[in-house]
């Protein structure tokens, strides 16, 4: 049985300010894959993820992705809502309704159950990240695009992040993660972004 790729990238190169950020990359992501994006600051990791999420339109080459969950530097949590309300809204975007029990379990797993009813604005950066992780667990999206997910996480949360990613991959999902600190996942592959040879695009 051949697996249908969750993401197919063909000689994709992103541009910003009329400048090509990295040499074209090609990539095929199958269910179960964990791909780490490696590259120096400014090499275009974030822009590549934003492109794959459909938020950046300046690129050459092509990609086909479906069913993506994108997690940028901004978490997408409204400070005026509680984690429960935020998660309900985020699930609503995917046309899901969450039942209370499941949501609480997810928050329990990511260690922020006690904050379930307080406003996100009152939570620390790390706690907000944990709420975001609960959102991934609850999402039905197959392909996760994570931008620097380790930011602001303590040691236990980093372990939790690793477990959640490993579990998602084991369940037929795939993760592309831009990070400066490698996450120990079995069978991971790396995609290195080379700075493009200085050239101005026509």
């Amino acid at each position: 049985m051949t697996l249908q790729p969750l993401l197919a990238v063909n000689t994709l190169s992103c541009e910003r300010g009329g400048r090509r950020l990295f040499s074209p990359v090609s990539l095929s992501v199958l269910p179960g894959d964990y791909v780490e994006l490696i590259g120096a600051n400014g090499s275009g990791k974030s822009t590549l993820l934003r492109t794959l999420a459909g938020l950046h339109s300046q690129f050459t080459g092509e990609y086909h992705s479906q069913d993506t969950l994108y997690q940028g530097h901004r978490l997408g949590l409204d400070g005026l809502l509680t984690p429960l309300e935020n998660l309900a809204w985020l699930a609503g975007l995917e046309d899901h309704t969450l039942d209370h029990e499941t949501t609480l379990n997810a928050l329990d797993r990511t260690g922020v159950l006690t904050m379930a009813y307080s406003l996100c604005a009152a939570m620390s950066a790390g706690q907000q990240r944990r709420v975001a992780m609960a959102r991934w667990v609850l999402s039905s999206r197959k392909l996760w695009l994570l931008d620097e997910p380790l930011t602001a996480l303590d040691a236990s949360a980093q372990g939790l992040l690793r477990d959640i990613i490993a579990e998602h991959c084991a369940n037929g999902g795939a993760v592309i993660c831009a990070t400066h600190n490698a996450i120990a996942i079995d069978g991971k592959s790396e995609l290195i972004l080379d700075a493009a040879i200085a050239e101005t695009l026509p």
Partner: peptide, 17 residues
């Protein structure tokens, strides 16, 4: 402004049907 800064807008455009 608030939705832009918090990333809510971003999530809306990526994920909303």
């Amino acid at each position: 402004r608030r939705d832009f800064d918090s990333g809510v807008l971003e999530q809306t455009l990526v994920s909303a049907q």
